[in-house]
Design a protein around this nucleic acid. Structure first.
Lengths: 339, 339
DNA sequence: ACGGGGACGTTATACGTAACACTTCGGGCC
DNA sequence: GGCCCGAAGTGTTACGTATAACGTCCCCGT
């Protein structure tokens, strides 16, 4: 018959069970072995259940000085890829009693509500994609434990990194195209400053350079179908011999390239081959289905979270890039013989 | 020269500025008009800046009994649509000093980490999609202020609702197809128990019923390209006269329908017309571009958050469905004359 | 017989903040 | 001169939790 307007506290539970508040805390915190009798413990649990007691998180966080919550910073929510990263990260976090809060890098949200303003006291750590570059400066303001996803391991941030082996994926794409006989290649690059895209450009160039007769051109586009459409169209209508293959920094760009080729009256893969990177649902929705590099987003999220938890516990996160592999579908074929 | 290992508190700021902790709270809380002099206020602000002071959120939440944080429950992160909802909701929330935390309905995350376990003390309110049905029971456990997105207004939950005018969208689709001359229609329905999908089925049937000679068939599929592919394929290979149009519950299903039709050797829109619902990027990535119903996801999120804030302030949220409109593209045409 | 130590608790305290209740002081007004 | 009032603060308390430190019993070994 306590006051019903406000939620029950541990003290209410204590009163109902006829013990002290400390005992309630011990029992519910599972620290009662050898301190409270079995029967009393059960009585406390029963009282808590009866009253519908829920611990007050704010009080607990204040008392403990930590929140068991980490932040996942992603460049945008639009992408299926980061949905997978979140899923993997959240699963691992849950296994360790941690929660994950998402912070999509602002786009139309404005800096008014800076989630890092009080991050120090609301979060235990941060897992951040290198693509959300603008948010990084804000993060560094606080001294929160940080693990970067797909970022330069030798970077100045000094944070631990977990990376997909994008370089190897690009290598596989290049070898696949070279084996088919392609020599003139257009690189449709994401116009986003991020290490993960730099790697693509560097590796593609490195792999093609030693092969005689190769020609690498680059077009830049924002990561959107329309952006890729426009960039591809201008790149393919500039004078000079037309590339026989378009290597795209991700699947979304590839979808834009498809549209540009269709508009120019070119067929995929008969006239021009196209490759992507990510292997999203989009890759099999378009026609022909896209040859692309499959990234295991969930595993990526899991490994990232494991690294962050290691940092939080003072352990050394174990490195090693996550392998990726090429998935060959209908968008690649030998170049037209007329070439 | 205070201890540097731990973060500065408001008391540290007070000491540095030569005032009491209460004064610091007043100044930084912007409640100092007529209680603290201009010069003192400035001195406090300067000290806070100097020390890099950040208020401790846990302490503040405990003191105030609220968090200025609300939860957005979405069925999955995969969808571009809910990314838009989040963006709109987060923008409105930010304008009112609120933060938004995302809760993607668990899929492989398991119930171990129930975000509602202590929701009462960590959240001020919940904005939930009706598609995340499994999470709703958990929500009702706590007595948190709740606003539903796209849910039955007369539902037993008794929560306020904000809805898109899906019924009108379906009406527009039906009228468009009828005007083109279609009579035999396949409804590719999402196999997800949710009011928003019930409305589609009900409204489509209602609009076709009074037209003589119409025939409505229904196929159910999970919301995925492959699921839709399989369902459409079996629906179109069953004996009987083939439908001339496929009305899909969303764009993703439409992409699956495209694949099924392609596999069956049928062309869109010459042999079969297809319509979607959502107008995602996917709609213009596939060929031909999809005739679909555009939903303004951001506006949806904004209106939802406005309603929730109204509830939190004890005001009456204003209703009214959000209008939607048909976007006609290349996937619809008159039925083949042989029909 | 006596002391040492489990078993079973309780009391007290601190985390950092916001807000209520108070004090002090210098005018202004009758 | 007495009185009240506003400006400019300060002292204190409470929010609900987790845990360190402290008391009892009572049993058992020597």
């Amino acid at each position: 018959m306590t006051r019903s307007s406000t939620r029950p506290t541990s003290r209410d539970v204590a009163q109902a069970a006829g013990v002290s508040q400390a005992a309630v805390s011990l029992v519910l915190g599972d620290k009662w072995r050898g301190r409270v009798s079995q029967t009393t413990a059960e009585r406390v649990r029963e009282a808590a259940r009866e009253l519908g007691y829920r611990p007050n998180l704010a009080a607990r966080n204040l008392r403990l000085g930590r929140t068991r919550t980490v932040l996942l910073v992603v460049p945008a929510l639009t992408t299926e890829f980061f949905a997978g990263v979140y899923t993997g990260a959240a699963r691992v976090a849950a296994e360790h009693g941690f929660g994950v809060v998402l912070y999509p890098s602002p786009e139309g949200i404005g800096p008014a509500r800076d989630p890092f303003a009080s991050a120090q006291t609301a979060l235990d750590g941060v897992l951040a994609s290198s693509m959300a570059a603008d948010a990084l400066t804000a993060i560094r303001g606080d001294q929160l434990p940080l693990v970067m996803l797909d970022s330069d391991p030798t970077g100045s941030l000094g944070a631990a990194t977990v990376n997909l082996d994008i370089a190897d994926g690009v290598r596989q794409v290049a070898e696949h195209l070279l084996a088919l006989g392609h020599r003139r290649i257009l690189h449709l690059a994401a116009d986003v400053p991020s290490w993960t895209f730099d790697v693509r450009a560097r590796e593609l160039a490195a792999r093609l350079a030693p092969v005689p007769g190769t020609e690498l051109r680059t077009a830049r586009a924002p990561i959107s179908i329309d952006g890729a459409l426009a960039a591809t169209e201008t790149a393919l209508t500039t004078p000079g011999t037309r590339p026989t293959a378009v290597v795209c920094d991700d699947d979304k760009l590839a979808a834009g390239a498809y549209k540009a080729l269709r508009r120019l009256g070119l067929r995929v893969p008969d006239d021009v081959s196209v490759t992507g990177l990510d292997d999203l649902a989009l890759a099999t929705a378009i026609d022909p289905e896209l040859t692309t590099v499959r990234l295991d987003a969930e595993l990526f999220g899991e490994r990232g979270m494991q690294a962050l938890l290691a940092v939080l516990e003072g352990r050394q996160p174990d490195g090693g890039d996550i392998p990726v592999h090429l998935v060959v579908r209908g968008s690649t074929a030998p170049p037209p013989t007329s070439a």
